Amino acid sequence: MKSNRKNYKQNQSNRYEFTVENLSKAIFVVNKHAKTAIDPKFLYNLKKVALEKMLNDGKAEKIGLHFSKSPKLSQQSSSVLISCGEYLFHLPPSKDDFRVLSHLGNLDKEHRNPKTNLNLIEAKTLLIAYTGIKQTQSTNANTSYTNKRLSPFVKRFGER
């Protein structure tokens, strides 16, 4: 029984090590959830900061530029392809990236990142610990809208 507990604790501590494998899995999970989140700003910022720190630490490398799958206002835009272990990610390019990196053309639709069994809370915890950024409390858009619409003569329940 004690050996099972020891193995469990050892597996849990391995999950929070800042290895390339753990960090890339966490970025993958955060990116996947950001695509469907109601307020994805923090998740995308967490991904960006973590990838930039991994690039600075030498745990990831920029491979080249890809044409974006869905450009916003232009007919064509590019994104930087970044390799982290077995995973590939895209970030918006800087002006320096256009000078230094070669263009790889269109996205390779055949390549898929490997699946992972990490949940969002564990992924966020790992990346927040790695990057040192803090999640700000976002105000709910609905509550601020209803507060603006209330008449100054109306008293809310409990304010009487």
Rank of each mutant, 00 (worst) to 15 (best):
Y44D: 08
L101V: 08
T146C: 07
V80P: 08
A37L: 02
Q76K: 15
T136E: 10
I121K: 07
A34T: 07
L104F: 06
V29D: 00
A37T: 01
H33E: 04
Q137K: 13
K124L: 03
R15W: 04
I38Y: 08
K69P: 06
N22I: 03
V49M: 05
S79I: 10
F18T: 03
G132M: 09
S70W: 12
S3F: 14
S68A: 03
R15T: 08
T146N: 05
L46C: 02
F42G: 03
D97W: 07
E86D: 15
L65A: 12
K62G: 09
T139F: 09
E21I: 11
N45E: 05
S151A: 08
R15S: 09
S13G: 11
R160Q: 07
A123I: 00
V100C: 06
L55W: 06
S144E: 12
K69Y: 09
K2R: 15
H90C: 13
T146A: 08
L126E: 01
N140T: 06
G158N: 05
H66C: 02
C84I: 12
V20G: 09
R15Q: 13
L73C: 15
G64P: 02
N117M: 07
M54Y: 01
Q75L: 15
N117Y: 04
N106T: 12
K72Q: 13
Q135Y: 10
V30W: 00
L73P: 11
